[in-house]
Nucleic acid binder design. Structure first.
Length: 521
RNA sequence: CGGGGUGUAGCGUAGCUUGGUAGCGCGUCUGGUUUGGGACCAGAAGGUCGCAGGUUCGAAUCCUGUCACCCCGACCA
């Protein structure tokens, strides 16, 4: 597999295509430890852009960042029963604090250095954070606590995939404390809305918002909300979650506050998170057989300029034109399309914030133009600008957009405004294309035979809206037989009659509404 | 944890049946010619053949053990 070969086509083998793309586009690499990955600069740049956009929205909605430790005393995990049950099977445990050399000079764990109490490498931080909140919160006047942390977490997964599920991953976890159930409810819904805006308006990925079933909810939550995306192979992926934890962690860690009327009550909590999985989701939603297709708001390189020329003299001219254009682009602010209308308006979320255009001039002289074209398509530059001798004579340049491959020739003087327009079109075009794909991939199924047929064979089957009797037993049976799960019960019905009563496709028992089934990552 | 497979240069591989100087493509480096969709010529560097032990005059090759990784199933963001 040399860099010159293309990617495995999506139609041939979607997982191979994804892997090829991640590796060849220089987004990530395998690490020496099984299940772990090295996020390379180009991939990390995407994550940084995600972080920045999300962090701004967290700040806008009143949150502050803090940092809690990587290691958690083992005893903390067991304080919340459902929580420990959910995570116990995938925790890495620190048992010793020292190495030594044995008589052969090999490094071994010093058996003398066994820890009194083992440490867990956090799979999530509710426990350490709620242990701290006990001392932070005394009175209703200390509430709400609105804290977020950017961190790494460790979950010992059996099967891992670059970005989508790795043993160690990067994420953000918000942990908030409130005086009432309703306040926590509002918080969990507004942060879900932040995620929805991020997915749709930054990633260009349409998502369903809804609530998880009992069996799919977070271990320790009262209920879990989620955003669910659909990617090109017809599989669903949970892109973000927001949990209403009710008083579960407050009880477990004894976090009470004095109410205005002098009583004492346990506080209400939320937690919410998105991870580097979003990078994988974005890739699988938009990219093609040539490589990464990234939405301009999250593309590390929005514009790449390729000045061309045979000899020194011509190059000096095309380089000068390229540098001038790059300078102009960097100084100009791109705003992009308006945000999609909100289903759950959050006042503090203002529209798009204009930002300088991210541009690169590729002056490598050993590479032919063709090589550069392929490389920047692989790496997902949104717009390619070609400036060659013929252009200079005509006072033009060629603009090629990554999403459609379309090329136009424009006067040099119009390039900046044309690029601004193209970026905006690409940003909204990717969302529109993904939305159309989801529409085509969504269907209503009313009978058992149709339902089973929908999930026969391997791979994704799109979103299947079907009646479900509401029991975990039926859900488990479907998961086992058809490897399909309930992704969510959407807030906004996908079909006009989804909320009408019906009969469960599997059992024929009464059903309150249709839910969304899919094969999922 | 069960079934299958693979370990040879940065990557992809040949050689193993039948033991005898480890080869090829891509990439890399140097010099030159090139440059509007994956350029060409010449030269060069790069290997404890996963690891350990055994058989043998001699092991990438045969034998034993071991480790790692991948794929498929059961379980999970």
């Amino acid at each position: 597999m040399s860099a010159k070969d293309g990617l495995t086509p999506r139609a041939t083998n979607f997982p191979d295509w994804y892997n090829d793309l991640v590796l060849k586009a220089g987004l990530a690499d395998y690490a020496p430890v099984r299940g772990c990955m090295i996020i390379k600069p180009h991939g990390y740049a995407i994550w940084e852009l995600m972080q920045r956009a999300l962090d701004d929205m967290f700040k806008a909605t009143g949150h502050e960042n803090a940092y809690f430790p990587l290691m958690i005393p083992k005893s903390f995990l067991s304080k919340e029963a459902a929580h420990v049950e959910g995570f116990a099977k995938e925790c890495a445990v620190v048992t010793h604090y020292r190495l030594k050399l044995d008589d052969k000079g090999a490094v071994i764990v010093d058996p003398e250095a066994k820890l009194e109490e083992e440490m867990i490498l956090r799979p999530t931080s509710e426990t350490v954070i709620w242990d701290a909140y006990r001392t932070w919160i005394q009175s209703y006047r200390d509430l709400p606590v609105l804290v977020n942390q950017w961190a790494n977490v460790i979950r010992w997964e059996r099967r891992t995939r670059l970005f989508l599920r790795t043993t160690e991953f990067l994420w953000q976890e918000g942990h908030t404390a409130h005086a009432t159930f309703d306040d926590a409810e509002i918080e969990s819904r507004r942060m879900l809305e932040v995620y929805r805006v991020f997915a749709e308006d930054f990633m260009g990925v349409p998502v369903l918002t809804g609530i998880k079933t009992e069996s799919e909810k977070f271990a320790g939550a009262d209920h879990t909300y989620c955003i669910e995306a659909l990617v090109q192979d017809g599989k669903a992926i949970q892109a973000g979650t927001s949990h209403h934890l009710a008083q579960n962690f407050a009880r477990a860690f004894d976090v009470q506050f004095q109410t205005q009327d002098g009583g004492r009550e346990y506080v209400y909590a939320t937690s919410w998170g998105v991870s580097t999985r979003l990078v994988g989701t974005m890739i699988m939603a938009h990219s093609d057989d040539k490589g990464l297709v990234a939405p301009p708001r999250l593309a590390p390189v929005q514009v790449v300029i390729l000045p061309m020329g045979r000899d020194e003299e011509i190059r000096s001219k095309t380089y000068a034109a390229a540098d001038a254009m790059a300078g102009e682009l960097r100084r100009s602010l791109w705003r992009g399309p308006d945000f999609t209308p909100s289903e759950y308006p959050v006042e503090e979320l203002v529209g798009p914030v204009p930002s300088p255009i991210r541009v690169k001039v590729d002056k490598r002289e050993k590479e032919s133009p063709g090589v550069k074209f392929y490389e920047w398509e692989l790496k997902g530059a949104c717009v390619r600008v070609e400036i060659g001798p013929r252009d200079l004579e005509a006072g033009t340049c060629v603009l090629a957009r990554r999403d459609t491959g379309e090329k136009i020739t424009v006067p040099l003087g119009d390039a900046v405004s044309e690029i601004d327009r193209l970026l905006t079109e690409i940003q909204s075009g990717l969302h529109a294309r993904a939305f159309a794909f989801r529409q085509e991939s969504t269907r209503i199924v009313n009978t058992k035979a149709e339902f089973e047929a929908a999930f026969e064979g391997e791979g994704g089957a799109g979103l299947v809206c079907a009646h479900w009797d509401g029991t975990a037993e039926t859900e488990a049976m479907i998961a086992e037989k058809l490897r399909a799960t309930i992704r969510c019960i959407p807030f906004v019905p996908l079909n006009a009659d989804d909320n009408e009563p019906g009969v469960c496709v599997m059992t024929g028992n009464p059903s309150k509404q249709r839910v969304v089934f899919a094969r999922a990552y």
